[in-house]
């Protein structure tokens, strides 16, 4: 690529990258929070509530992300939900992620040994305290690999937002490709860039995982 192009399109690409990061971070945050709440609600022993949440998760996981985005962005106005592309993108990413995160959290909750909760109950600890101090830390350890994986997947999904005209990196790049007629080179560059980005997110996650599980590791006392 010649340097004139970088001067010309650099700022737009940078801005696009900023939007990508914003969408990803906000989408992850919404997804994690919503997923966690869904997991908690699912533990309440009210059958209809459980069915609704189960259906929500199945629907989100059973349909393409792109269709969800179209529904939200193009279908929304029909029911009075008029969102800007970026807002719709962030919300869509969050909703999409929440179903997967909810399942990850559910598995994590179940993986916390029952005895650890019983010990806390038998000491008279309140549920909020048990959740915060016993269950959550235990969950975090067992769910981090899956959470990181899902966050890496969401990194990749951000490019889909370009289809509903969210001005993120992919969108800016396609504009540039169209204007310069250098489609292949631009896309190849983009591919390499995302490859590195996803790899970086995964690496970071693995580092985090080793850090957070350090206290569990002891040669003579291996715990899965």
């Amino acid at each position: 690529m010649d340097s004139n192009l970088l001067v010309q399109y650099g700022p737009a690409l940078l801005r696009g990258f900023g939007v990508t990061i914003l969408c990803w971070a906000a989408g992850c945050a919404i997804g994690l929070a919503l997923g966690f709440v869904l997991m908690l609600l699912r533990r309440i022993e009210v059958k209809p509530l459980r069915w609704i949440i189960r259906a929500y998760i199945e629907v989100i996981r059973g349909t393409p992300f792109l269709i969800q985005l179209f529904l939200l962005y193009s279908g929304g106005p029909a029911i009075g939900l008029r969102l800007e592309a970026t807002t719709a993108g962030i919300l869509g990413l969050g909703v999409y992620g929440s179903a997967y995160f909810a399942e990850i959290f559910r598995a994590g909750y179940q993986a916390v040994p029952k005895g650890q909760v019983e010990a806390a109950l038998s000491l008279g600890m309140p549920y909020g305290g048990i959740l915060r101090r016993v269950i959550l830390p235990g969950m975090l350890v067992s769910t981090i690999p899956a959470l990181v994986n899902m966050m890496a997947i969401l990194t990749k999904e951000t490019v889909v937002l370009s289809i509903i005209t969210v001005p993120e990196l992919m969108y800016e790049m396609q504009t540039m490709a169209a204007e310069t007629f250098a489609s292949f080179e631009t896309i190849l560059g983009m591919a390499l860039f995302y490859w590195l980005l996803v790899e970086a997110v995964s690496r970071l996650g693995r580092r985090l995982e080793t850090r957070m599980t350090r206290f569990l590791s002891h040669p003579s006392n291996a715990r899965a």
Binding site: Q116, S122, P126, G129, F215, R223
Partner: peptide, 30 residues
């Protein structure tokens, strides 16, 4: 339950807390 202590076969210590933190936790919370 706060007046009835229980000791389990599998100890059920909280793995992410030190021995001291395990003992102190309920003192703070309960």
């Amino acid at each position: 339950r706060r007046n009835v202590g229980m000791v389990f076969q599998q100890f059920n210590l909280w793995p992410h807390m030190t021995a001291l933190e395990n003992v102190a936790e309920a003192l703070v919370q309960v």
